[in-house]
Design a binder for these strands. Sequence first.
RNA 1: GGGGGAAUGUCCCGAGCGGCAAAGGGGGCGGACUGUAAAUCCGCUGCGUAAGCUUCGUAGGUUCGAGUCCUACUUCCCCCA
Length: 383
Amino acid sequence: MTDPLDAPTDFTFTVSATDGQARTGHIAMPRGTIRTPAFMPVGTAATVKAMYPEQVRDLGADVVLGNTYHLMLRPGPERMARLGGLHRFMRWDGPILTDSGGFQVMSLSALRKIDEEGVTFRSHIDGTAHRMSPERSIEIQGLLGSDIQMQLDECVRLPAERAEIEKAMRLSLRWAERCRVAFGEQPGKAMFGIVQGGDIPDLRVESARALTDLDLKGYAIGGLAVGEPQAVMLAMIETVEPHLPATKPRYLMGVGTPDDLMQSVMRGIDMFDCVMPTRAGRHGLAYTRHGRINLRNARHAEDTRPLDEASACPAARDYSRAYLHHLVRSEEILGMMLLTWNNLAYYQQLMAGMRTAIAAGRLVDFVAETKDGWARAEAAEKG
RNA sequence: GGGGGAAUGUCCCGAGCGGCAAAGGGGGCGGACUGUAAAUCCGCUGCGUAAGCUUCGUAGGUUCGAGUCCUACUUCCCCCA
């Protein structure tokens, strides 16, 4: 993509246009350029499930996410390093962002213990115990060859008591400092901090300010979309946004639905990752210009229309809903592949649309038009 | 010709000591999925809003009470001739 001779040697974020709180621009780094706002497909176990790497790239994804916890267990970071790193391993030469394992601190709660030093996980694969400190997390991400590394944090599922949220937020802050030291100076790469604080505004502000003082290359907002209503999530973004430096990328972790993405971009978010398009696709749900379409439903059994006749994605344009319905019902692998492909295509199309709209100063209109498209299709379906 | 076994909820398979509207599956119908342990999870699936009503091949019988026990019949399967 980028001519090696012209490739930047460092990590730079450039905002080229703003529209309200929203911004568009790009992150330039040696492995490639990430156009923002960006959606990063999730490739937990060194694969964006049911997709070829080339497909992911062709859809317009500039960066994918890999997962420290999963790759640490299998194939293992040292082996990955011997094999030449994650990029080569999975045949993805663009930037890779790795999650630190922080999310698993929450999602594997039955299998872990947390203390000041770090986290003790029990492998979901074979039950063996694994220790991960902030330093080890950064070390593993380095062995994987990650371009954007995340600090180890503690993510709390909501609703939760203030005391628990506060404790996790403070611990995450201390871990952020340790991760920063462990990461050191790595031109061309970045380590992001993660704002915590649950649904409590003053804790969010405290977290954002303290992280800003660490002068990191990017800032994530974590611990959202973990059980709270969308309105609460959006309120937290609005709370945090003014306290994050405008010159650094802002990454909303683990979000979200197409509407979440639009609402969050309008509030100043530059990067997202989410399992939604891939997982929902594997489970028979398509995200389209015409809204959500559950291909398992009987009403598609003889519907010869494609998901979206105007899409550039073959999965959306060339296959009938009747066929997709059949594949999903038959649990055929191709059904998962096509729906994942469609969903990722739609997500990337949505991001591209927002980038263009921001540059043109008409993001609000774009969002309204998009939602109108969903509503019209829904009305037609009922009428 | 002789002997043995089986028929279950109106899609299928299938459990079912005399108290059963009847376990489980599959299938079907719908829902969920947000830094991916999970190609996973959750509802509903005789009629009725309900009291209740009608179900276990058919017809009788025993019993307070029968899907369960007895008799006959029908159909299917297996073994021996």
